[in-house]
Design a binder for these strands. Structure first.
Lengths: 127, 127
DNA sequence: TTATCTGCAAAGTATTTGCATAATG
DNA sequence: CATTATGCAAATACTTTGCAGATAA
């Protein structure tokens, strides 16, 4: 159902070489610089499809979506440096348990949650 | 620094009478219906100012900001019914502690976090 | 009085979509 | 070859902003 087009390969390979979250526009620019230009709409469509398949993570930061290939499979959270973008993936079992407990207490079912941590990493704090 | 204009009073009083999160556009419509029309830009500006003062909470749901007067003062989270919008405010001390612990373990400082729970409330689940 | 607020319409921005063309399987 | 993907530009939708006139203190 997914064709391996030059564009999809370009996006995927670029993202594999990166370690921080980037916006669709940034990725679009990166690709152009690499001499592997892909239309902006296609970048958006590809990212959406990769996100739907759980291949990339999406975070919303300051009015825009940013994307990154994910390391950890399944549900997880992030600890993102608000200065340099360095990101750690977290399991957060305690939080899952807490969310379940709270949901039960309030009579809610099918509870889902969003959780992200933002701060300054050791490097950036040292400056 | 904040003048008590007719518009600011209208927005505040409307929000005090509501119990769920609403978008700026919805509030703008509500005001018109009430016969107390306020320009959309003013609604946005007022909500932003109220949010900055910590008087209203802002949540981002499906590409738009939604606002509600907050009950609990200080930092807290929400458990929102994705069907009817009913919202419970939560303290979540366990989560705060967890976030601090994780931050310390990774050498991050000045850590902040976002956390929201979404589910179906008892009423909506019963249907 | 005068600094701040309002309303309108125009601008801005990230993202999506229509459609003709290109390329995959 | 049939179907799906691409690229461009135009369309969306929410939100912000410039500015002249109105208003609270």
């Amino acid at each position: 159902m997914q064709r391996m087009t030059r564009q999809r390969i370009a996006v995927t390979s670029l993202m594999e070489s990166l370690d921080d979250f980037r916006s669709a526009q940034q990725l679009h620019d990166d690709l152009k610089e690499r001499g592997d230009a892909v239309g902006l709409a296609t970048v958006y469509r590809t990212l959406q499809s990769l996100a739907d398949s759980g291949i990339v993570d999406v975070l919303r930061i300051e009015d825009e979506n940013v994307y990154r290939m994910c390391k950890r499979t399944g549900h997880h959270h992030h600890l993102v440096c608000r200065n340099c973008g360095t990101t750690e993936e977290l399991a957060g079992l305690e939080v899952e348990d807490w969310a379940k407990k709270i949901a039960r207490e309030h009579g809610f079912v099918e509870v889902d949650h969003t959780l992200e941590l933002f701060g300054l990493c050791a490097n950036c704090a040292a400056e």
